[in-house]
């Protein structure tokens, strides 16, 4: 175990980062999409015609999980897990680990918060279906911070 860490510390750190990005952002999205799905199911039970609008709102908190996947994938690609030999210096591996953090942290929290906003938005289109655009805009305001986190994660991974 120690030997593995000693010889491949860079790769271990990088993969740890990839695991955090995919795992934490995915957890956030699962929670967000889950709560929004419950609200959507309630709305569709009352009015099946609103399935489309409810589904869009339910999907919105799902993107953080995808951002996590992107970051994880880029790290794996750069350290050579996906074909070729795994080779990464300890320093670079540590940078990749740091690069994964913004998406992991902001992905987890923003997806949950966005899920709550989506629930409120679904409640809103239950009463005022014509205000769907506003409900989506409100949920998208939360997403901004996940996009920023993704951007910084990707800049670190692409530029180091």
């Amino acid at each position: 175990m120690l030997e593995l860490l000693g010889n491949n510390l860079g790769a271990v750190l990088a993969m740890f980062g990839a695991a955090l990005a995919v795992g934490l952002a995915g957890t956030g999205s699962a929670i967000g999409v889950g709560v929004a799905g419950q609200a959507a199911a309630g709305l569709v039970a009352e009015d099946p015609d609103k399935f489309g609008s409810a589904l869009v709102l339910q999907l919105l908190p799902g993107t953080q999980g995808i951002y996590g996947l992107l970051v994880g994938f880029m790290i794996l690609l750069n350290i050579g897990v996906l074909g070729g030999e795994i080779s990464v210096s300890t320093e670079t591996g540590f940078y990749y680990f740091l690069g994964a953090l913004p998406t992991a942290i902001a992905g987890l929290t923003s997806a949950i918060a966005q899920g709550k906003t989506a629930v409120a938005g679904i409640g809103m289109i239950a009463r005022r279906p014509e205000e769907q655009g506003k409900a989506i805009t409100m949920a998208i305001m939360v997403e901004t911070y996940a996009v920023f986190a993704l951007l910084i994660s990707m800049l670190i991974i692409l530029l180091v």
């Binding site: 995808i66 951002y67 992107l70 690609l77 996009v147 920023f148 951007l151 990707m154």
Partner: peptide, 20 residues
């Protein structure tokens, strides 16, 4: 406006994931 880049990354890299 940096979200434009973020969303662009999302499309390109997810496509790469499936291609890989």
């Amino acid at each position: 406006y940096s979200r434009i880049f973020g969303m662009g990354l999302a499309t390109g890299v997810i496509a790469m994931v499936f291609n890989t």
